[in-house]
Simulated assay, not measured.
Amino acid sequence: MGADGRGPVRLTGLRPVDEASNRQLGAVVAYVRDHVLGNPAACASELLVASAAQHLAAATLAALPHTGRTDPVPADRTDATPATLRRAIAYIEANAERDVTLADISGAAFVTPRALQYAFRRHLGTTPLGHLRLVRLDAAHRDLLAADPATATVTGIAMRWGFAHQGHFAGLYRTAYGQAPGDTLRA
């Protein structure tokens, strides 16, 4: 919905709001083109395609002026409680294998998306979708530990959890677990 509560969000201009947003949008478009649309295995994964579409939509809305831009309201800050965070985390953990949006998580936590973002920033120092990415990374880690290296691949496991770009997945994995995902698979 637009900021006026009527109808869908619409772009109101084609000039980016700032140069950094423009660069980010360009990077997201290149990522989706090269690592999702250009990869038949990635295109076969509903989770990957949905995540890429959400990423592209978020980058577009961050970069271009639109009718959905609103200023925060006081309730957004007061709803950013530990209870909100607990409800959101429970939803994320129970649904990490599904196509999950910010709206889904905020609905499950009974707060606005902005309040949910405040709660995650205030209490965890991340965003709801950033936390979802960490939950999926942990699930991929567990799958790598349990997999048979003769039949499983790092790429297949990464794609199952929504990671289309193998270099990005490997970097996140190495930062979190101190080794390459292939080393975990072979261990």
Rank of each mutant, 00 (worst) to 15 (best):
Met1Thr: 12
Gly5His: 07
Gly5Lys: 07
Gly7Val: 12
Val9Ile: 15
Leu11His: 01
Thr12Ser: 11
Pro16Ser: 15
Val17Phe: 01
Asp18Pro: 08
Glu19His: 11
Leu25Cys: 04
Leu25Ala: 12
Pro40Thr: 01
Ala41Gln: 13
Ala41Ile: 06
Ser45His: 05
Ala52Lys: 04
Gln54Gly: 14
Gln54Glu: 15
His55Gly: 13
Leu56Asp: 12
Ala58His: 09
Pro72Phe: 07
Val73Cys: 08
Ala75Pro: 03
Thr78Lys: 10
Thr78Met: 07
Ala80Met: 07
Pro82Lys: 02
Thr84Cys: 15
Leu85Lys: 04
Leu85Gln: 05
Arg87Met: 12
Ala88Asn: 08
Ile89His: 00
Asn95Val: 00
Glu97Ala: 14
Glu97Asp: 13
Glu97Met: 10
Arg98Pro: 01
Val100Lys: 00
Leu102Arg: 15
Ile105Pro: 00
Gly107Trp: 02
Ala108Trp: 00
Ala109Val: 03
Arg114Leu: 15
Ala115Tyr: 03
Phe120Ile: 08
His123Leu: 14
Leu124Glu: 09
Leu124Phe: 04
Pro128Arg: 06
Val135Ser: 00
Val135Phe: 00
Asp138Pro: 02
Asp138Cys: 09
Arg142Lys: 13
Asp143Gly: 03
Asp143Asn: 08
Ala146Cys: 09
Asp148Met: 07
Pro149Thr: 02
Ala150Met: 11
Thr155Cys: 01
Gly156Asn: 03
Ile157Cys: 12
Phe163Gly: 02
His165Tyr: 11
Gln166His: 12
Gly167Lys: 09
Leu172Thr: 04
Tyr173Cys: 00
Arg174Asn: 10
Gly178Asn: 01
Gly182Phe: 10
Gly182Asp: 12
Asp183Val: 15
Thr184Met: 07
Leu185Arg: 06
